[in-house]
Write a protein that binds this DNA or RNA. Structure first.
Length: 644
RNA sequence: GCUCACGUAGCUCAGGAGGUAGAGCACUUCCUUGGUAAGGAAGAGGUCACCGGUUCAAAUCCGGUCGUGAGCUCCA
């Protein structure tokens, strides 16, 4: 057997016999302390577990429990352990196993079983997993010819594994065994099951085999695992926090919006409080656009179906559109997008290059058919309002326009409290319209704009829409969840389809560059995200009710009434609660309604012509006059929506 | 659309092994006029999502429809 040279990265190598396991090499080359934290090693691009044999010279890095790769390995192994537990509890006879990968938050494993699992089974599964963890069963890797593995799984009736094996191109495959559970798996895995110290079943749901709805529906069991029980506790706490912030729950409690069976699923009814918040958002949006040299448009909700044939929507998106309706024997269609209307306005006259860039924006309500199963609160609806805009410009203006859009975009997001985001640049897909040259130029312009703004971004190769490259911005909310709202897309398709043109400097006709962009995406969805981001406690500038006056007894009714009128006059969004209830009761209600300020009026305040101000967090400000309060509110609201 | 679960008063939920329903909050009225998160009493409110079937009898069992949730799929 030949000798090989192995080294810990950055350190001197030692000679070992070929076939030595990674674990033995780590033991020889690393300190005890390091070894104890090591789950696997990275050699080049590959992650190997400690039981893997090293067959050539290698330099390795340690993958320890405190790394994200380590957590991934833990969860992947936990899915195997969960599968083992489930087979032990329910018997392997009636169950076929499918796949069990790790995910961003944990892992899942898919099972094919006649009888449904139920959440009541979770406790027993968790208990069994604990037993398996306590037994510290080693994960044993076995490499065998593919044909032998096929034979092995065929014998056991594991048809899904056989299907996977038949598609693997390598001659040899690896199997992992812990206890009696054997699974086809690339690995790497934990050294032994004892590493699983914090395990929790999360939920179960149906999932098609390989995500294809023609395939059988399997039962997907979701779980999560952590090295540290405290981290699990924190994660579960976060799930609860997300539940508390659920915009559907808060939307109901705060009377922001409702969805009504009789009206139809996926259609939002904005209640007064929600409608007012929306108005504030829209007002801000419009002012910001006006300041940035956009012009506002309004367009109708329906149009002749032919328009959508010209635009290409019927070819590409017919399935996502509502069915047509006949009006005087002509077919009409609810709009799924605003762009053809804006193009209609563009075409009202002959355009000159001197007019460019043309920047048109609209809060345009569109209707898209979403499958019933996809609908969710405000996040996924059938009728929604896009904060849409279309920019028509010259090729040489593209980069500047993109730059300005990004600038405005990030400013608007910041005003709403989103300062963390990931940016993605999607490039030309396999199927595309327009010339390769134009694609390259446009993509380059997007890139340069991002770089000029000093922004980090990731390239999503081939992920562009067929009509042009795009930039997507995903914001992070206060719980660290990502939401894609903003998108900036270059379009080579519509100008062509609608034969748009302008007269250039040379007196000839040219085709304009068209940019679509949305900052919030859908107002409905964005509002849902805001509700969850702020847990319903909106910042002052967009709070539908900024303050509520609470009188202590009927004796202060007159003063309460005059303070109320004065504040309304002063433009403060004020309400009053003059019911015959105790102060405690009124405070509780205002607090639950997440109103930023409570103004308390008792005999003392009447006498001194002041109000006592209570904040949402329970603290009090010193008594102040009504006009001082109005001024304070205005100053504070203005501060948070400073213009760009 | 698919799988599973769920649908009882405005809201949050209990109950119901088949004999036409209950709590708390909210609402109305009365008492109480009380300084920083629920004062008291009374009253009103539901053909138990809808449609069909089984049954002497269905809110309860069965089937379908609609809606909601979790996920799959989809997301121009």
């Amino acid at each position: 057997m030949a000798d090989i040279q192995i080294a810990k990265k950055g350190e001197a190598s030692q000679t070992f016999p070929e076939g030595i396991t990674a674990g033995e090499a780590v033991k020889a080359l690393c300190s005890n302390k390091e070894r104890k934290q090591t789950l696997a090693v990275r050699v080049g691009e590959d992650l190997l577990d400690l039981s893997a044999s090293l067959m050539a010279d290698a330099e390795f890095e340690l993958i320890t429990a405190d790394s994200s790769e380590g957590l991934d390995i833990l969860r992947h192994s936990s899915s195997h352990i969960m599968a083992q537990a489930i087979l032990e509890i329910f018997g392997a006879d009636g169950i076929k196993v499918a796949i069990g990968p790790s995910t961003a938050d944990g892992f899942y494993y898919d099972f094919d079983r006649q009888e449904p699992f139920s959440p009541e089974d979770f406790e027993a599964i968790e208990k069994k997993v604990k037993e398996i963890a306590a037994a510290a069963l080693p994960f044993e890797r076995e490499v065998m010819p593919r044909s032998k593995a096929i034979e092995y799984f065929t014998e056991r009736g594991e048809v899904y594994k056989v299907e996977l094996l038949n598609e693997i191109e390598d001659d040899t495959v690896s199997l992992y065994r812990q206890g009696d559970f054997v699974d086809l798996c690339r690995g790497p895995h934990l050294p032994h099951s004892g590493w699983v110290r914090a395990f929790k079943m999360i939920r179960l749901a149906g999932a098609y085999w390989r995500g294809d709805e023609k395939n059988p529906m399997l039962q997907r069991m979701y779980g999560t695992a952590f090295f540290d029980p405290k981290a699990l506790k924190k994660y579960l706490h976060q799930l609860e926090e997300a539940k508390k912030r659920d915009h559907r729950k808060l939307g109901k409690e705060l009377e922001l919006f409702t969805i009504n069976d009789q009206v139809g699923p996926g259609l939002i009814l904005w209640q007064p409080k929600g409608a007012l918040a929306r108005k504030l958002i829209e007002d801000y949006w419009k002012e910001e656009h006006y300041r940035n040299s956009y012009e506002l448009l309004y367009t109708p909700h329906i149009a002749k179906r032919d328009l959508w044939a010209t635009s290409g929507h019927l070819d590409f998106y017919a399935e996502d559109m509502f069915s047509s309706m006949d009006v005087d024997d002509v077919s009409y269609q609810l709009k799924p997008m605003n762009c053809p209307f804006h193009i209609g306005i563009y075409k009202t006259k002959k355009r000159s290059y001197r007019e460019f860039p043309i920047r048109w924006c609209e809060l345009g309500t569109v209707y898209r058919y979403e499958r019933t199963g996809a609908l969710q609160g405000l996040m996924r609806v059938r009728g929604f309002t896009q904060d849409d805009a279309h920019i028509f410009c010259l090729p040489e203006q593209l980069e500047d326009e993109i730059f300005n859009i990004i600038d405005l975009n990030l400013h608007v997001l910041k005003t709403f409290g989103f300062t963390e985001y990931n940016i993605y640049l999607s490039t030309r897909p396999d199927k595309f319209v327009g010339s390769e040259e134009n694609w390259a130029k446009a993509t380059e312009a997007l890139k340069r704009a991002l770089e000029k703004k000093g922004l980090d971004y990731e390239v999503d190769p081939g992920e562009g829409v067929f009509y042009g490259p795009k930039i997507d911005i995903k914001i992070k909310d206060v719980l660290g969840r990502s939401w894609q709202c903003s998108t900036i897309q270059v379009d080579f398709n519509l100008p062509e389809r609608f034969q748009m043109s302008y007269t250039g400097e040379d007196g000839k006709d040219h085709q304009p560059i068209m940019i679509h962009r949305a900052l919030m995406g859908s107002l409905e969805r964005f509002f849902g995200i805001l509700i969850e981001h702020y847990a319903g406690a909106f910042p002052l500038w967009m709070a539908p009710v900024q303050a509520k006056i609470l009188n202590i007894t009927d004796a202060q009714l007159d003063y309460t009434e005059s303070a109320f009128k004065e504040l309304r006059q002063a433009g403060v969004r004020i309400e009053k609660d003059t019911r015959n209830e105790k102060l405690n009761y009124k405070i509780r209600e205002a607090q639950l309604a997440k109103i930023p300020y409570m103004l308390i009026i008792g005999d003392k305040e009447v006498e001194e012509q002041t109000v006592t101000v209570r904040l949402r967090d329970g603290k009090n400000l010193p008594p102040m006059s009504v006009s001082d309060f109005a001024e304070m509110i205005h100053a504070e609201s203005q501060g948070s929506i400073s213009p760009q």
